[in-house]
Simulated assay, not measured.
Amino acid sequence: MSVIADIDFSPESFELGRILRVEDGVVVEVESMVPLGESIIPYIWIYEPHRDGFEAAVKNHPSVESFEVQEVHDDRTLYALEWRASRDLVIKGIREGGAQLLEATGTGHNWRFELRFPSHDALSDFQDYCLSADIEMEVIRIYNPTKPDTGPWYGLSVPQREALMLAFREGYFDIPRQISTKELGNRLGISDQAVTERLRRGTSTLLAHSVMIEELQQAAESDE
């Protein structure tokens, strides 16, 4: 099963980070990376009023072959970058590990990549690769994607989501508890027992479609 990881890199640790180096307070966003033969074309957003200096610095970088404007809006500009990706060890590791870039954001201090790996083993292999290549990186968060048919609420029904959100906002899960199931029931227009059942079933559904998804998938595969 695939796994998603948020990973931080220092700008100096990979070629693209050095190319797109910005000053403090400036943010660069990579919208996507499109494979083109042996090359990869990143599409990059830069926000005003930093466009002119950023554009000049990128175009003058020795690894850059072209840096062209694709879209211009009032507050930001989209560029397509062509560069010698073969020199970039981070991008090489991502490609060889079969990972997919979901999002990347850079500042003057660090780059945050959101990467989808085909498995936990693939992520571990990527970490080993970065260590052996002396690439400065830190895994910030690891999580499993939800099932494709669960919808935007991790499989929760509308009543379950409503009950869980109200319980959370009102401190039902706090220690000490700030509201009772009877009070929640009065707010929702249902009985005390109905609130308890709805919270229990909603919590079970939420766990099954988030933190337990990999274990449940493995159990299902072993039964086949």
Rank of each mutant, 00 (worst) to 15 (best):
H73I: 01
L216H: 13
Q100E: 12
P11W: 07
E82N: 12
V22K: 12
E170Q: 14
E136M: 10
R201P: 00
K147T: 06
P152I: 06
F9G: 12
Q160H: 12
R112E: 11
E170D: 12
M165C: 06
V72N: 14
S66H: 03
M1R: 08
G25C: 02
D6I: 04
S2A: 04
G37S: 09
P145K: 05
I190F: 15
E170V: 02
S157A: 09
F14I: 03
H61A: 03
G97K: 07
I94S: 00
L81F: 05
M1P: 09
S191H: 11
E48Y: 10
F9M: 11
N110W: 02
I44P: 01
C130Q: 07
G202C: 15
R18Y: 00
I175F: 14
R200M: 15
M212A: 15
E114Y: 01
P152R: 13
R177M: 04
A56Y: 11
M1L: 07
F168N: 08
S191M: 10
I19K: 06
P35Q: 09
Y143E: 10
S39T: 01
E138H: 09
L216V: 08
E221A: 12
M212N: 12
F168S: 14
W83K: 06
D125T: 10
K182A: 15
L16T: 03
I40K: 07
P145Q: 04
Q178H: 13
V64Q: 12
S204I: 14
D88Q: 05
S180R: 10
I190N: 14
W153V: 09
D74I: 13
T107E: 09
W153F: 15
L89A: 08
Y43A: 00
I135M: 03
D192T: 11
L123P: 02
S124M: 06
S119D: 09
R187P: 00
T181Y: 00
E65G: 08
L164G: 10
E136I: 11
G106W: 02
P62C: 04
A85W: 05
P35T: 10
R169C: 07
D88H: 04
G185H: 05
S132M: 03
I4Q: 09
P148R: 01
L164I: 14
A99H: 09
Q217D: 06
E215T: 14
A122R: 11
E183M: 06
P145S: 02
A194P: 00
V158M: 12
Q217H: 05
I19C: 06
V22A: 11
Q160T: 11
N144Q: 13
P145R: 05
D88C: 07
S32H: 01
A219P: 00
F67N: 01
W111Q: 07
K59G: 00
E82W: 10
L123C: 06
E12G: 13
A208T: 04
E224R: 14
L102C: 07
A104V: 06
Q193C: 05
E96F: 02
E221M: 06
V58I: 06
L131H: 13
